[in-house]
Nucleic acid binder design. Structure first.
Ligand SMILES: [Zn+2]
Ligand SMILES: [Zn+2]
Ligand SMILES: [Zn+2]
Ligand SMILES: [Zn+2]
Lengths: 153, 153
DNA sequence: AATGAAATGTTATAACATTGCATTTTATGC
DNA sequence: GCATAAAATGCAATGTTATAACATTTCATT
């Protein structure tokens, strides 16, 4: 994300936190900024390292977990559970709500692209499981493969 | 899985290993049997505990990882990466090959049901990602929710 | 300034996974 | 049968991801 877009995103998040009565503390903000500069998924410990590099300040993994927890609850960040990494929600700059995000995770470069399930996909999925009586809760799909950039290298 | 079906599955796996020139050692077989008795996903360490309880013999986590690795390579076992658990492939008793398995994982009881994507689902998924240039590799979908049994409790 | 709630720090530990090397088991050629 | 090599397993150490328990700091409210 470009510097300008990052500033804009941060501004919007600030507003949003104010609306919700939440505190976007310096460290929470720093972590979010840090994540906004990356299109890649980051592990908790990646963030710890990156935080030190960027802000010349140590932060403990425990704190990072807690701050990620905060950001996830507020739907600003997603956890990619298949590889224990975290990304900023692609909808952070818009009010757009999710229905069924698809995470396209590159096994080569770790980039994660978040797109929305469109057309008949949600219905097709539902149709596939309705006979089992299973009730879907987490509707995000984590898809692993090779991104366009890596494919063309 | 019933005792009879388990014996049958084991018999088939034995044959299959012979065909492929693989050794289904006692411990590998024990682990597979152990997993066949469960519809739940098991973690590596669950298997360590269960192995001790069933066979009165200690086995190290490292060994379990290796044996799971063997079973996964041979497509007899799946890893559910979103919760680090392992299940026997539902197709173990048939020659049926996968195209796109759906793992329906109960967040309450941990049961995993493996069903095959049917009808327009694979095509719908492909249609959703084709414009991104992303090339899907691992086509399994891990879906979290509540199973029928837990829903009705 | 006193108070209390939220955030953050600190330490320990749980849970999941891999590496490297030693030993045992098994298959194979002589 | 026996030597040899390869495969499987054991074992110790370490790495990675995550949470629990408790202490301290920060900050708004009174
Ligand atoms: Zn999102
Ligand atoms: Zn890539
Ligand atoms: Zn399967
Ligand atoms: Zn259940």
């Amino acid at each position: 994300m470009s510097n300008k877009n990052r500033q804009q995103a941060l501004q919007l998040v600030k507003q949003l936190c104010q609306q919700r009565g939440l505190k976007l503390t310096t460290k929470r903000s720093n972590i979010l900024q840090l994540m906004l500069t990356e299109k890649k998924g980051l592990s908790t410990y990646d963030i710890v390292d990156s935080y030190l590099a960027q802000y010349h300040q140590k932060i403990s993994p425990v704190s990072v977990y807690r701050m990620l927890g905060f950001l996830i609850v507020e739907k600003l960040v997603h956890k990619i559970s298949s590889n224990s990494q975290y990304i900023v929600c692609s909808h952070i700059t818009c009010s757009h709500s999710h229905q069924m995000p698809l995470f396209l995770i590159c096994n080569n470069c770790n980039q994660v692209e978040e797109v929305d399930a469109a057309n008949e996909l949600p219905a097709a999925l539902e149709k596939n499981i309705v006979s089992t009586g299973f009730q879907l809760q987490n509707k995000a799909l984590e898809l692993h493969g090779i991104c366009q950039i890596c494919k063309n290298i």
